[in-house]
């Protein structure tokens, strides 16, 4: 495959920032493509982990943050496990996700950031996850409330979804964690 690199203004530091965020060394990649061949979502994505590695190494710019692998990746760690050079490929994808959010790369199919936000918001409030609130926040955000909801009655009957949140968690410590993370300009949650 030919990889064309389009340079954009902010391009100069993407590689270094990713290396710093992930702690991985990009220069040792052999381009053996083992990471891509074991990637469970490789049928669904146009971009593959090995391609991301190559592009980063060639100093790709912010256009890389639009790659579909970034939000289709399920963090299964197969790539990192199989890489013969021991590169933490999954950690590199994590770093790109963070940059994609910070630099406001375009939203993608499925809107994983919205889901993560809904998930973490319920944790921040209740100290533990609370599915109903989380699912509602996510579904309302996507405007596709009806998908999956036909399963709710059975799941509630079977006790698979609880109707009341658990309030036994230490909410104080969790709120402190979120407050501190925001102060440190970490997660935008």
């Amino acid at each position: 495959m030919t990889i064309t690199i389009r340079k954009t203004k902010k391009s100069d530091r993407l590689k270094e920032i990713v290396e710093q965020l992930s702690g991985a060394d990009l220069s040792i990649c052999l381009q053996c493509k083992k990471c891509s061949s074991g990637c469970p979502v490789n049928k669904q994505t146009v971009s593959r982990p090995s391609e991301i590695m190559r592009r980063l190494h060639l100093n790709a710019g912010d256009e890389l943050l639009e790659s579909d692998i970034i939000w289709t990746c399920v963090s299964c760690e197969t790539c990192s496990t199989r890489c013969p050079m021991g590169i933490e490929v999954a950690a590199i994808i994590d770093a790109l996700r963070k940059l994609a959010l910070e630099r406001k790369a375009s939203k993608q199919k499925g809107n994983v950031p919205l889901f993560n936000k809904a998930f973490l918001k319920t944790v921040e409030i209740f100290g533990r996850t609370y599915e109903i609130a989380m699912i509602a926040a996510y579904k309302l955000g996507t405007g596709k409330f009806m998908n999956d909801t036909e399963k709710f009655p059975t799941m509630i009957k079977k006790g698979k979804i609880s109707l009341i949140p658990s309030l036994h968690g230490d909410r104080k410590i969790v709120r402190r964690i979120f407050k501190k993370t925001k102060e440190n300009k970490g997660a935008k949650v």
Binding site: N116, R128, G169, I173, V174, F178
Partner: peptide, 24 residues
């Protein structure tokens, strides 16, 4: 008073958040 580990949403969002939630 155990609390949520943050799951995938945590580590897809921020490295410190992802380590702090389990640490609690």
């Amino acid at each position: 008073g155990w609390t949520c580990c943050g799951a995938t949403a945590g580590h897809q969002t921020d490295r410190i958040l992802a380590a702090s939630l389990p640490a609690a």
